[in-house]
Design a protein around this nucleic acid. Sequence first.
DNA 1: TCAATCTTGATTAGATAGGTCAGGTATGTT
DNA 2: AACATACCTGACCTATCTAATCAAGATTGA
Lengths: 153, 153
Amino acid sequence: MLRIGSSVEYATRLMVRLAAEADGATLSAERMSALENVPRDYVDQILQRLRRAGLVESRRGAQGGYKLSLEPSRITIGRIVKAVDEGVFEAVCGRYSAGDTKCSHSDGCGIRPVWERLGLFVEEYLDNVTLAELLEPELGVSARVKHLFGAER
Amino acid sequence: MLRIGSSVEYATRLMVRLAAEADGATLSAERMSALENVPRDYVDQILQRLRRAGLVESRRGAQGGYKLSLEPSRITIGRIVKAVDEGVFEAVCGRYSAGDTKCSHSDGCGIRPVWERLGLFVEEYLDNVTLAELLEPELGVSARVKHLFGAER
DNA sequence: TCAATCTTGATTAGATAGGTCAGGTATGTT
DNA sequence: AACATACCTGACCTATCTAATCAAGATTGA
Ligand code: FES
Ligand code: FES
């Protein structure tokens, strides 16, 4: 139901690596592959998706590589996830085309909003964790997220 | 990443049907299949999983069928989901066996807690929506869940 | 020129989800 | 007893998706 796939995990790890890089220094895909133990060609594929989403910039040729295109504090896990994982949230009800009566509840259904809210909920969570916060592991999860939990757990 | 699969949606719909049944009246799998437009054999399969989880009771033979084994107010969506969907939450980090160094972060990783919290978060949400609440669609999503969202959205 | 490095898109092997099937067991009715 | 109804069990199939690989090209720096 909720699954952090390898592309999402890899992308996050790569981004954290880049964020840890001092200044605007670049890292090559080759190097990131070695550092993060992610298959070389797969690193390429993931970085391209991140680039197309505007999260990283690249420079080709010798001494080329990648670097973040925004400050770590402006990049959220949510953006990373959306960049590499097309359908972040998907419910069955939405898969039926209009005429299809398969989901007989379509109108005034009490169940559907539960899934939809859950989707928003997860998005809200992911959009409130930034790369910058991940660089300070002693904080654990973002303080900004904690309010979402309500009372202490 | 977050996907409401058909087994989860079907199970929820079937449970709502049963909850709507007055008193302890039973419904046959055949009938539920027709009412909810879910493949006959698949209904069987799903109801068995719900029964093994203790959420429904069955009676065999003529005039047999299924009914809830608990009051609707004591059955949460979370329990339904866990009954039909084995690995509700799964992160990549957890897939590597101890010796495997694939995930070089394993210790003191700042990323992993983000996924773990998300898992708890989703569980908390699902465990706070009951069948009883779904029977009153005018309420939309449970008031008990709203506090999880923090301020108005 | 040459080597390093990103860029593009197709392809493949394996896992998973969604659904089907065949055969069995229990129970009510006649 | 016989029969129909309906649950029960577990194996099986198939389309889709994921993770990963591959091949060929385009830039850049030395
Ligand atoms: S619209 Fe799909 S369950 Fe109600
Ligand atoms: S332990 Fe897997 S990303 Fe850190």
